[in-house]
Simulated assay, not measured.
Amino acid sequence: MFHINELKEAALEKVAHILPNTIFQEFDQPNSRMLIAVTLMNRGEKELAYQLFESIAAYGPDENENRHFAYVRSLIEMAEMDAEKERFVKAEAYMMKALAEFPDSMGYMMSRTHLEVYHSYYLFKLGKKEAAHRELEKLILREGARFASLPQEDGQNLVGPALCYAIHQLALFHAEEGDWEGAATSFERLLPYVIWVDEEGWNEGDRMMKEGKKDVGFQRMVEAVTYDAS
């Protein structure tokens, strides 16, 4: 049960001086409450922001596009805040629900592919490592096909960043498991999609791997490539 009036008063105390009064007059509206929650979050008031997001998510899906956006965005923000506190059971559940309800119209605001990578990470941290690997492999195949269907420049701009992010995360799964060869092999898969490669740095990393300095070599390979991870 959410004590909406108490949440409103707490939010007023924290951010009333930087938001229009009309926003608080419409506190019962999910989209106005969303703006307040995001403002609180950006100012470090995460506990209160979380409660506001939770109150918005409690409305559930909505036929109204703006209300539905607020619902999905709230689930995503709660998932990420739970993950920060290593509450991965809740993080995974919220992100899975957000992905199930994620509308195509939200694509201009946030990358669904990035959110899917986050979900795989939450699975991994829950010990569901095989499922996490499978989810990323499926994602990489899908986005790789999208990349191939576009002109090179469009592929690099529209698909490349999230695709590289997914491949990088898969490599990090292998690294966290101590499988440095698997990490390097996985990471090498992003070479066709990156913006730029420092050939000298990459070769140096590869040489270190062969010399048995696997963790250092892998890190050097990571440093040698550039892609937009946003």
Rank of each mutant, 00 (worst) to 15 (best):
E84N: 14
A70D: 14
E77D: 13
K138L: 12
P20Q: 07
L163G: 05
E199I: 12
E92F: 10
R87L: 12
Y59K: 13
A83C: 08
Y121V: 14
N42R: 15
H17V: 01
Y59P: 00
Y227N: 11
R142T: 12
R189E: 14
S32M: 01
N42Q: 15
Y94D: 15
E211S: 11
R67Y: 12
L141S: 12
A183V: 10
L115Y: 07
V216R: 13
V15H: 09
M208H: 01
F218W: 07
G205M: 03
E199C: 00
H119L: 14
L35Y: 03
M1L: 11
F27I: 04
A184F: 06
A93L: 09
G127A: 09
E65V: 10
D228P: 00
G182M: 08
S230W: 07
K138H: 12
F173D: 09
K85S: 12
A162G: 00
L19N: 08
E200W: 02
M209D: 05
N157R: 14
Y121N: 14
L163E: 01
M95C: 09
A175F: 03
D104K: 13
E6C: 02
E26V: 00
S120H: 02
S105A: 13
K14I: 06
Y227C: 05
Y193T: 04
M41S: 15
L19G: 07
E211Q: 13
R87T: 04
N66A: 13
A148Q: 11
L158E: 14
L158H: 04
M41Q: 15
G217Q: 09
Y71I: 05
V72M: 06
V117G: 11
E204F: 07
K8Y: 02
L75Y: 05
E101R: 04
E92G: 03
E176F: 03
S230I: 11
E45I: 03
K214N: 04
G160P: 08
L75C: 11
G201L: 07
A162S: 14
I56S: 01
P61L: 01
K14Y: 03
K46E: 13
L35S: 13
C164R: 09
V72L: 07
Y227D: 06
E101L: 04
Q51I: 06
L75D: 04
K213I: 00
V38M: 11
I167D: 02
A100T: 11
S149E: 11
V117I: 12
F173T: 07
F124C: 06
K8H: 01
A100D: 15
L190D: 00
L158S: 10
L7W: 05
L35M: 13
D215R: 15
S120Y: 05
F53E: 06
I56R: 01
S186F: 03
F124W: 10
N42S: 08
H3L: 09
E86C: 01
E54V: 00
T39S: 10
G201E: 06
R189M: 13
I56K: 05
R73A: 13
S149V: 02
D198N: 15
G205T: 11
A162L: 00
G205V: 06
Y59Q: 13
A162T: 11
D104P: 05
A16F: 07
Y50G: 09
F69N: 04
I23H: 04
F147T: 09
E6A: 15
G107T: 08
F2D: 10
A93E: 15
